[in-house]
Write a protein that binds this DNA or RNA. Structure first.
Length: 434
DNA sequence: TCTGGGGTCCTAGGACCC
DNA sequence: TCTGGGGTCCTAGGACCC
């Protein structure tokens, strides 16, 4: 990696220093934060449907459990009997994430949340010993939010990110890695280029064919060549590794560009009836997400896939997309999704996964009709929580569970479809002509 | 031999990230 | 039997317009 660039132009300005903190095995650490006896044990957090491992504690990693391992295979192994496994609880992880961010934001001039477990920090011009400062921040997060982290820092975000991953891999560094010094960076330039943030599998392959193996090899390339072969994205990474900051800290939370609700069914679906029910539920959920953020969507895509893990069965993946009237009304979304899905569905296929994706989001014009659609006879906690959040936003009683409505014989406020609450999915499907 | 060309909008698809 | 669910950004190419 090269030295710092552009010296002297802004002699009066301090050299920028970016930090990156990252929660170790974040989801597992969240579970352990609420159940301290998990500390040090092999813990695994599973994806939706408990399909595969999406987080492993270090003890679980040591047992050889990999990211994305299908749980039905791993579970059967005798030597893994004592692994503690959890279904994912994203509401919990979101809460912990906000707490961690608050601790960080209170301790640096500027902080940018990057992902559920990562935060970029502005460490520019801080007085005193930076290493000691980062050590203290890390300690505070562990004490207050109960989450172990690593911190890396350097002159650009990409270098900070690299520092963070080095801090994670080298126990001797005690979770801290300072890459502000070009000479220190040079000692890590023998790492594979694929370790760099933004250089994924495809790019690594491409680079290898050109004889580029290590970070040092990559940095040595001619910038124009990088721009030609790897587009502006590659060019930015290349510059950042040479100490030229191209990715500024952004303090305004980016407005969301899209909303996706996609899911594997858990078992193959063959009938139109089952399929429409699943996709109607996704569209309903997508509408809830829109409304909870005060947004409307004016573009929708729907897709349908068979199982990609069955090489002997033919694989189909079909998608349809179209502009729609701006809406956040679940009813309208269900109707649109149905219209798009119908020509995609074919009898005889064993469908594995489907999804509804909303794009071109705009601020909501006015309040849409509320819809509470579920076949679930159980009032699950997540359902009640979703209902509460709608009511908190639009006023008490805007939505209620179906059972309450029936029980009390209420004739309730209307929606666009009929003169009473439409809460049963079957009715919605009939009414929207699926 | 040589088919206008540039701008803009839209979509699909690729690549990467957590 | 059972294999994640979200996101972002960029590019190429077609349609359309002048």
């Amino acid at each position: 990696m090269g030295g710092r660039s552009c010296p002297g132009t802004h002699r009066n300005l301090a050299v920028p220093i970016y930090g990156l903190t990252d929660g170790n095995s974040f989801y597992c650490s969240c579970e352990a934060a609420f159940d301290p006896k998990l500390k040090g044990l092999p813990v695994v957090v599973l994806s939706n449907n408990d399909g595969c491992a999406i987080a492993r504690s270090s003890a679980a990693k040591a047992l050889g459990i990999k990211m994305g391992d299908p749980w039905h295979i791993v579970r059967g192994k005798r030597e893994l009997e004592h692994v503690q496994w959890y279904s994912s609880n994203f509401a919990l992880y979101g809460d912990v994430s906000r707490r961690v961010f608050q601790v960080l934001a209170d301790r640096v001039p500027r902080a940018e949340p990057y992902s559920i477990d990562e935060t970029f920090l502005d460490l520019t011009g801080l007085p005193g010993n930076l290493h000691e400062r980062c050590r203290q921040i890390r300690e505070d997060v562990r004490k207050i939010a109960k989450i172990p982290t690593c911190v890396g820092w350097g002159p650009t975000k990409t270098i900070a990110k690299l520092g963070n991953s080095i801090a994670k891999d080298e126990p001797g560094l005690e979770g801290l890695c300072d890459l502000t010094d070009p000479e220190v960076r040079a000692t890590y330039a023998t790492l594979p280029a694929g370790e760099v943030w933004g250089i994924g599998g495809r790019t690594t392959e491409k680079l290898q064919k050109a004889g580029v193996i290590t970070i040092a090899d990559f940095v040595r390339l001619d910038p124009r060549q990088v721009r030609d072969q790897l587009t502006v994205i590659g060019a930015r990474i290349h510059a950042e590794l040479r100490g030229i900051s191209c990715l500024p800290l952004s303090l305004v939370a980016a407005t969301r560009k899209g909303i996706a609700v996609t899911r594997a069914f858990g078992h193959p679906i063959t009938t139109w009836c089952e399929l429409r029910e699943a996709v109607a539920a996704y569209a309903t959920r997508a509408g809830e997400k829109l409304r909870s953020e005060g947004l409307q969507a004016s573009h929708m895509a729907v897709f349908l896939q068979t199982n990609p893990h069955k090489p002997d069965e033919p694989w189909h993946s079909e998608q349809r997309a179209a502009r729609i009237e701006p809406t956040s009304d679940s009813m309208a979304l269900i109707a649109e999704a149905g219209r798009m899905l119908k020509p995609l569905w074919k009898a005889g296929h064993r469908y594995y996964k489907a999804g509804v994706i909303l794009n071109d989001l705009v601020a909501q014009a006015d309040q849409p009709a509320m819809l509470f659609a579920t076949r679930d006879p159980v009032r699950s906690a997540s359902l009640m929580a979703a209902m509460d959040s709608v009511n908190a936003r639009y006023g008490r009683g805007t939505v209620r569970p179906l059972s309450t409505v029936i029980q009390r014989g209420w004739s309730t406020r209307h929606d666009r479809l009929s003169d009473r609450y439409t809460t049963r999915l079957e009715e919605i499907l009939v009414a929207t002509a699926w």
